[in-house]
Design a protein around this nucleic acid. Structure first.
Lengths: 332, 332
DNA sequence: AATCTTTGTTTAAACGATTAAGCTTAGTGA
DNA sequence: TCACTAAGCTTAATCGTTTAAACAAAGATT
């Protein structure tokens, strides 16, 4: 890889100082540079195919125009869609995005954040694993600009963009009740993650605690989903509808229900939080909570941009998700 | 964001020069530094929570320890899985990964590569859109270390890691023929991308040109898949099995076949190139070509690492994919 | 005792940009 | 004609590292 041209190379060719070249190419000191010199500099820059060395610029300006994006699991479609949106939005503001995936590990999150910070990212957009409150507090103490997306920690006031999960869950339950599904089962993760527990809480409150709950351990999804469903159905008053609080849970559940020849929606109503391409292949269309991912990403980028220029104000944004009603909750 | 401690801060506290601090923390000049000073420096570094400024280091060493990863579409599970693997592998070698997604656009690819290079990434891992040969030649001319993954340009000898698509397709056809599916339809993209056309070529050669072909335009996937399937079936000698050359095509196809109440595998055999979670929700298990993504990613990182230290040798690696046989090709 | 090594450390330049401050030269006004 | 201003450009410091080269002091060698 041969050396790229620098300001100095241009300066030498034109016969001026590097300072002048810098001023011209950055459009500074407008009315004070002679037109001829300016155009010669620009011509030579183009001729040499000059691109400023962002590393050097960063060192001087203390801005890298990059943000670190930490996701829980980049191979989950939810994460990768967010990644795509954030990357696009960030690009519009001139930020490059460095992505890391924590696989729900606290240690890995800490490590990746360290890597981000060593590379002097201007700010962080984070979707943290459970029980990582200390990471949030720490970043806050260090006054590092960051925004939480999707997953949030209400106890710590900080920039946050998330879904109004509680209300979405209320809507889910209301829809089920309106459609005469009375006996409702909720399948969710066994976790301390607030956004998931809010989904559960919404269901509990709205059913006046009249719902059954199946908790699924991370790393044992298929296994635990199956036993939850079994316990829901093999009982005197079997469940009439199941509410899955995440896309992976839904997939596992539907897979199992397929195997058990449980017919949706005749035998059982189904409602999902978040959707996936996979629903397209199921024989029935699935009713689901649609999360406004584009807005989520857009707001996250807006907030981090704001935090980078001024980290005083903290905003907490909760976006409403809407229920997309399909056939899986329309029993005859 | 308060200023982070620098070498200078440590040097001042300990009362030595920054050079010595640098030597100690980098473990250089081993036997020449007094144990006491070394340990005092290390202690102070820890106390101040010192982390070297990678930007400054990069400027000096001309290495950023970062690689740019350009994908065709990060929201496609194929891409996001590769991203995850590459990120993990790269991390093991101390590289951070900056990700960009081109949405199959040549202009966007060029722009993202520019951004990567301005940020002085040490190398590039690329999955380029169709007709972007000139990008490859250009990078080659400029002697920039890069590796092509998945998508390749045989006319230009350069570092490449890809699947042996031709052989995989041969296997697909052989399997269908062995299972008495004689009349085969192939649904693929209308593209110049070699990896996809090799899948088609494998099918054509192995069927001795006795297969029907449906070409699908990017951006009109559902529409074109449907008309292709229709033309396959509404004919005197209808197709007995369909081979889809990509995951998105398969999903669109199965979705339509579901709607049309075509029963798999009784009415029609199905075989897919690449798998997705979505298959789990289909009533029948799907026979598919399994691509060795972990190996693909691992080799890509190995090659880029090699190219970064010495860009003379070019390797072309073709990995074999294997056929996972399920029920969708087992008619009674 | 003079010289040579070794050990432990410092000096200073460099990477490529930015930018405040300074320096010419020409033009203006009195 | 002299002082002043403005235009057009340069100087030089700086960001935080790395690293070759220089240096001083102590120990070994003759």
């Amino acid at each position: 890889m041969k050396k790229k041209p620098s300001l100095k190379d241009i300066a030498e060719r034109v016969g001026v100082s590097t300072a002048l070249v810098s001023y011209v190419l950055n459009g500074k000191m407008k009315g004070r540079i002679s037109k001829e010199v300016a155009s010669r500099i620009k011509a030579v820059a183009k001729e040499l195919n000059y691109h400023p060395n962002q590393i050097a610029r960063s060192l001087k300006t203390n801005k890298t125009n990059s943000i670190g994006l930490l996701l829980a699991d980049i191979s989950n479609p939810f994460s990768s869609q967010i990644a795509r949106i954030i990357e696009n939005e960030a690009d519009k503001l001139g930020y490059a995005v460095i992505i890391g995936s924590s696989d729900e590990s606290i240690e890995k999150s800490e490590k990746i954040i360290d890597v981000f910070l060593n590379r002097q990212v201007d700010g962080l957009i984070l979707s943290l694993p459970a029980n990582s409150d200390h990471i949030v507090s720490d970043l806050k103490t260090r006054d590092i600009p960051f925004v939480l997306v999707d997953r949030y920690f209400p106890a710590i006031p900080t920039n946050t963009v998330a879904i109004d999960n509680y209300t979405a869950s209320e809507d889910v339950v209301n829809h089920l009740l309106e459609n005469k599904y009375k006996n409702i089962g909720v399948i969710t993760y066994d976790t301390t993650l607030v956004h998931l527990n809010e989904r559960l809480r919404g269901a509990i409150e709205q059913t006046k605690a009249n719902c059954k709950i199946g908790k699924v351990r991370l790393g044992h999804i298929q296994e635990d989903v199956e036993s939850a469903i079994e316990s829901f159905l093999n009982t005197k008053s079997p469940i009439e509808a199941i509410f899955f609080t995440s896309n992976l849970l839904t997939i596992s559940g539907l897979k199992y229900l397929n195997k058990q020849r449980v017919i949706i929606p005749d035998d059982l109503g189904i409602i999902a939080f978040d959707k996936t391409d996979a629903f397209d292949l199921f024989y029935t269309t699935i009713t689901y909570v649609n999360q406004p991912l584009p807005l989520l990403g857009k707001e996250a980028v807006r907030l981090i941009h704001q935090a980078i220029s001024d980290n005083k104000k903290k905003e907490q944004i909760f976006l409403s998700a809407d229920l997309i009603i399909r056939e899986s909750t329309s029993r005859k």
